[in-house]
Amino acid sequence: MNDIQASPSAVWCPRVTVACVVADGDRYLMVEEEVAGRLAYNQPAGHLDDGESLASAAVRETLEETGWTVALEHLIGVHQWRSTEHGDSVVRFSFAARALSHDPQRPLDKGIHRALWLTRAEVAALGDQLRSPLVLQSIDAWLAGQRVPLTVLGSLLSEDRYP
């Protein structure tokens, strides 16, 4: 059966996620979160919501998980990975973003313990506590100068809550 004939429930769909590498000098904005009963560290990241652009999702997730409002500057890359946490395939869009302002009173998403700034060496030292290998891969791609203009992303969605 080809894709056109497949029923919607039979079509495989990966989880689409977004993440932001937010740098301040040699430090990176990270979140400490509880995942499946253990502490894990990640960039501000999360799932793309229905009707939401990739850029909007990245800005929204960063605000919800850290209290930081950011401006996206570049797409760092698109990465595929099979999660060891849930076994599903993940397609992750990693963005470089600049911190604009912080609201320390803003409640953080459920499961997020805190936002913190760590150096690359401190992130690497977390080892198995990293939510995925994509965390360090995104920082390293950014450090290597990998930058793709945001104009490569297209959206025909009428709703874009976080331009």
Rank of each mutant, 00 (worst) to 15 (best):
R106T: 09
G46P: 07
S101I: 03
H102W: 15
R60M: 05
Q105W: 00
L29M: 14
G25R: 04
R82P: 02
H74V: 04
A36M: 14
H47K: 15
F93N: 03
L48R: 11
L63R: 13
A45F: 06
H47Y: 13
R60Q: 04
S83R: 01
G77N: 09
R82L: 05
V91E: 00
E73L: 09
V16Q: 11
E61L: 15
D26Y: 05
A97S: 07
S53R: 09
E65I: 11
P104W: 03
A40D: 06
G77Q: 09
R60D: 01
G77R: 06
L75S: 10
Q105V: 00
E52P: 14
R27N: 05
L100P: 08
T17H: 00
D50Y: 15
G46C: 10
L108T: 02
T62N: 09
R15D: 02
R15L: 10
D88P: 00
L100H: 08
L39C: 04
A71R: 12
A71N: 07
A71I: 00
A23C: 11
D26F: 05
Y41D: 06
R82I: 10
V18W: 05
D109A: 14
V78M: 05
H86P: 02
V70I: 12
A19F: 08
L54C: 03
V91L: 01
Y28E: 04
V21E: 00
F95Y: 14
R82N: 03
A96F: 03
C20R: 01
R82A: 05
V78T: 09
A96D: 00
D49R: 13
A71S: 13
E52K: 13
A19P: 13
E52A: 05
L75G: 10
C20E: 06
V70W: 01
F95T: 02
I76S: 02
A36C: 12
T84M: 11
E52S: 06
L108E: 01
E52Y: 12
A23W: 05
D24Q: 12
A45K: 04
W81V: 01
A97V: 01
L108P: 02
P107Q: 07
V91M: 00
D103Y: 10
R106P: 12
A55R: 14
L72G: 00
S56G: 13
E32Q: 03
V18R: 00
D103C: 10
P107H: 07
M30H: 07
H47S: 15
K110N: 14
A45M: 14
F93R: 01
R82T: 12
S101A: 15
W81M: 01
V70E: 02
C13Y: 01
